[in-house]
Simulated scan of single mutants.
Amino acid sequence: MKTIVICSGGMDSVSLAYMVAEQHELTRLVSFDYGQRHRKELDFAALAAKRLGVPHDIIDMRGIGASLTGSALTDDIDVPDGHYAEETMKVTVVPNRNAIMLSVAFGVAAANGDDAVATAVHGGDHFIYPDCRPAFTEAFNTMQQAALDGYAEVKLYTPFVHRSKADIAVEGAKVNTPFAETWSCYKGGEDHCGRCGTCVERREAFHLAGLTDPTIYEDPDFWRNATGVTATEETI
C-alpha cells in the first residue's frame, strides 16, 4: 500500500512514518506550515524524511492559518500548562486544521498515485480536538471517496484513532523510532518545556508504556502533578 504520512515532527507522526515504512510502502512525508508558534517541529519532520529516505513536502498554509485565529498555537496567546484533559487546553485548538490538512494531503496522494494518507490522530486527542475523533475520520474518509470518485482511490489510514499515546510509544519502539529526534513541545524552546499539554502527555505516555523517555525537559517533574503520578509510582 503506497502511503504518504502527514508528519508534524512529533513522536506520534514520526512513529507512524516508521511503522508505515516497515509495514507498507512509505512514499513521502507531508508537513504543513500554518503559521504555528515555531517551525522547530518542521525541522524534525525533515530529519525523519531524511532518515527514512523519502521526499518531504512542506505545504505553505500561512495565509490560511492567519485566518484561523483564536488559538494559542497561531496567535499571541500563552500556551497553558497542564494535562489535555483540562478545559484550559481548548485554547490550543486551531479550527478545522486537520480537516484542511487532510484535504490537501488527499489531493497530493491522488496526484502521485498513492493508495492511502496516514495520520497519527489518537484516543488522547478526542477530548480536545474534534477533527481527531473517530466520527470525523470516518466521515472524512467517506467524503473523500466521493470527492475522488472516478479519478483515484485513496483511503484514510488511522491506526491509532482508537488507541492511546502510550500505545504509540510501544508501537514506535518496535520499529526503532528515534524518539529523541522528535519534537512535541508547543513552546519551541531549546528543550521541551515539560509543562504544556503535549509535553505532559508525551512524558506520561513513556511512563505508561514502561519505556525510558530520552527527552530533555526544562521541568522534568511537572508531569507528575499534572497526571497525579507520584514519585514512588514512577519506575522509569
Rank of each mutant, 00 (worst) to 15 (best):
D149S: 14
Q144H: 12
N141M: 02
F136R: 09
T142A: 15
A120I: 06
A139P: 04
G150C: 10
A147M: 09
Y129K: 03
Y129C: 02
I128W: 02
P159K: 07
H126F: 13
Y157R: 03
C132L: 05
G150A: 09
P134V: 08
V154W: 08
A135C: 00
Y129I: 01
A135R: 12
G123V: 05
P130E: 07
T137D: 01
H126Y: 14
G150Q: 10
F136G: 04
C132I: 03
T158L: 02
G150W: 09
D149C: 07
Q144M: 15
P159M: 09
E153A: 12
L156P: 03
V121I: 12
P134T: 09
Q144K: 15
A146Q: 04
V154R: 11
L148P: 05
F140L: 15
A152V: 10
I128C: 10
R133T: 09
A147N: 10
D149R: 14
I128R: 09
F136T: 06
K155M: 11
D149I: 04
F136L: 09
T119K: 02
Y129H: 02
A139H: 09
Y151D: 01
G150D: 09
P159V: 10
F140Y: 14
R133K: 13
A147G: 00
R133Y: 04
Q145V: 06
A120S: 14
P130K: 06
N141Y: 01
H126Q: 12
G123F: 02
E153I: 06
V121Q: 10
P159F: 08
G150M: 10
T158M: 08
M143R: 00
A139Y: 07
T142M: 11
T137W: 00
D125L: 01
D149P: 00
A152M: 07
G124I: 02
Y151L: 14
M143F: 11
H126C: 07
G123L: 12
Q145P: 00
G124T: 03
I128M: 11
T142K: 15
Q144A: 11
A139N: 07
V154A: 09
A139W: 05
A120H: 06
T137L: 15
H126M: 10
Q144T: 07
T158C: 13
D125A: 01
A146D: 00
E138R: 15
A147K: 00
T142V: 10
D131W: 04
A152G: 07
L148V: 05
A152P: 08
A120D: 06
H122D: 10
N141D: 15
P130W: 02
C132P: 03
A139E: 08
Y151F: 14
F127W: 12
L156T: 05
P134R: 08
D131N: 09
F136W: 13
P134W: 05
E138Q: 14
C132F: 04
Q144S: 06
Q144G: 01
A152L: 08
E153C: 00
A146E: 01
Y129N: 05
D125C: 00
H126N: 11
G124D: 11
H122N: 15
G150F: 09
